[in-house]
Nucleic acid binder design. Sequence first.
DNA 1: CAGATTCTTGACCGATTGGTCAGGTTCGGT
DNA 2: ACCGAACCTGACCAATCGGTCAAGAATCTG
Lengths: 217, 217
Amino acid sequence: MNKDETSNVSSEATIRERNQARILEAAESVFARHGYRGASIQAIAAAAGLPKSNVLYYVGSKRKLYLTLLERTMQRWNAMLSDIDADDDPAQVLEAFIRSKMALSQTHPQSSRLFANEILHGAPFLKESLFDEMQTWVDSRAQVFRQWADRGLMDPVDPVWLIFLIWSATQHYADFETQILAITGREALGDEDYRRASDFLCEVILKGCGIRTRETT
Amino acid sequence: MNKDETSNVSSEATIRERNQARILEAAESVFARHGYRGASIQAIAAAAGLPKSNVLYYVGSKRKLYLTLLERTMQRWNAMLSDIDADDDPAQVLEAFIRSKMALSQTHPQSSRLFANEILHGAPFLKESLFDEMQTWVDSRAQVFRQWADRGLMDPVDPVWLIFLIWSATQHYADFETQILAITGREALGDEDYRRASDFLCEVILKGCGIRTRETT
DNA sequence: CAGATTCTTGACCGATTGGTCAGGTTCGGT
DNA sequence: ACCGAACCTGACCAATCGGTCAAGAATCTG
């Protein structure tokens, strides 16, 4: 009985979940490249290796699919960005922030591009409440940065512009990967490239903010 | 006779040039938002206030229109980026570079977004020769930066990553304007905002590279 | 003024779009 | 074995897509 139920659930979840995962991956790639308006369900279906109506059977509509992916992107980002406190070490906090953002660009470039496309489209699918959350998050971080500056732990730079600097610098590796590869003559950005770029960003940005790092060798 | 000729030429150029300018402006806006695939000629026509077939009369095809805009974007960028020399002052060069890029983001945000969309699409319309030119440009700049580092005028940071940092940081204000406005509670980025952001980027990036700036008051 | 050129623009075309729908197949439970 | 649920998928629909074409109006030129 118990064994029978497990077998049943597993079989049901396997088909639906497997197909949904295929569709989500395919859709992310298409939306990341062409944005919402430029993506077609047929292109997504082709990328997923399923007929179009089968895709619609699972996801309902283009809009629902897109919203699911956007939500997933936000969750990926939130899961990697931890809270900070004024008692934390600025060097460690900023370095962790930069490195985790770079890791996201490396592991989920399509998510980054999908988000970039959403913003370029004028963010029609991002709820105002989500921007409110972002604002709250930026404000709380900015407040900590200001306290560090007050205590002489870093220069009194504008903390909001600093956050934008880190966002832009780190997302660039995912969003503009095509350009970077063409200009640097690479076929892909590997671990070593990401490590060196992350080191560079940590070094320049921290130094640029007057934050001294600890040499650990 | 001379007076009659002037009147004739002016009248002919006025209709065609005026309509082409209208179409280019409208198209830039639509392509900037939706990218090539997501932009429709009907949307461009509506934004230009002309019938679709009138638009096609002037520009021939969607592809030609897009390529024209892409070319125009490249020319705008090239017109503002001057050659540099190892004898130049690093602080002045980098500051000029950052400020001119920020000015471009401020005056031509749609161009920046159109380019961003082109890259997100995988750069299908950018000729390989154009990337070669970019690479040449980046390499020549990197060489100068390295010479500066050799002479102790700046830190030995990776010059290519430095250029990417400046690109990403400056283009961010155009490309992610929607996000910036939402988070900062602004309705637009004004001169003062751009000035402060430019100052911030100059200060942090130059300091981050170990370049000392001259205080001019 | 007449003819040539440019401009305007709706009708039309085949292809594609986001879906809807219906019917058949497969799977799971009784 | 039967029935219901889940899955699969081609046909179909109205709307939109990038263009073509033709006809009339406006403008230019000699």
